[in-house]
Design a protein around this nucleic acid. Sequence first.
RNA 1: GGUGCCAUAGCUCAGUUGGUAGAGCAACGGACUGAAAAUCCGUGUGUCCCUAGUUCGAUUCUUGGUGGCACCA
Length: 308
Amino acid sequence: MNKIHPNTLIILLGPTGVGKTALSVQIANHFGTDIISCDSRQLFKEMTIGTAVPEPKLLQQIPHHFIQSNSIFENYNAARFETEVVELLEQLFINQPVVLMTGGSMLYIDAVCNGIDDLPDIDPELRATLKDRLKNFGIQHLRAELKMLDPDYYHEVDIRNPVRIIHALEICYTTGKTFTSQRTKTKKERDFKVIKIGLNRDRPELYDRIDQRVDEMMKAGLEQEARMLYPNRHLNTLNTVGYRELFDYFDGNCTLQQAIEKIKSNTHKYVRKQLTWFRKDPDIHWFHPVQEEEILQLITNYKLQIKN
RNA sequence: GGUGCCAUAGCUCAGUUGGUAGAGCAACGGACUGAAAAUCCGUGUGUCCCUAGUUCGAUUCUUGGUGGCACCA
């Protein structure tokens, strides 16, 4: 006799615009669970239209977590998300055998499933200093520094990627130890099971949905939303598809029409990047949205292999 | 109707003094454990409008079409 394992986290994932929200409602209603959003941009209360936050009606119907719960002025990252979700899951599993997490932020999903190494928080001033050095002296300068402080990581890292180099230096400076020595490369043990359900569509259909959604966002007032956020444009969180293209337009670098086209093609690019990441994960059970019924059946009949 | 210009990648165009071609955008692939909708790396996908000539060889030159644009009627 099959029985769904208590403390099971169902993860509904897939590229942006594929239609995860609609299915998540079905699954949540079916199991009577909360929904944990796994979206690194819907986290922020200052953004609504451009991040395609679910309708207020829907948010009232089913308890959601991590939707517009934080401010763009705080520092947020995958490690913090991991801690907070794991904590929340402990609470939710007391009353719910199954919890649904849905979203497309790859690293955040990975952080919840496998964990992230424990590292100290980074002083924002240190990061700013390193960024300054990158700007003034070039990436070679930072490379040389990393080669000295952590030669092992220097040989491992993509030395053309400034973000990686800066991060390693941040850890070296903050801890006084090499970054390498603090990279465990191990999965954390979780006391819950995971079922990953991937949703995908044919590329042209998906792109078409995205283009329509962008047009709808513009009708809903994305330009005004972006204009209000424009003064904070240099915050990392606002380096986001849908906003940065409009900031370019406000700066006079392109026409509104060009900005809209760019939002569309950059969203297409994001989709490809998401799929590249998801493709590597053998634990994902892939479906097309028309298979909604089948997915529900498979979950309820415990036919999907449960991954740990 | 006449004259002129144009026709090359999905789009906008460059180019070959005759040896089957390359940029931007788009598209596609990949890396990625504390910025991740971020950041970084890679890939040219082609009946060079059709036809008949000249030529060892034509996308390039010539003839005749077809389509588009402009100007003149």
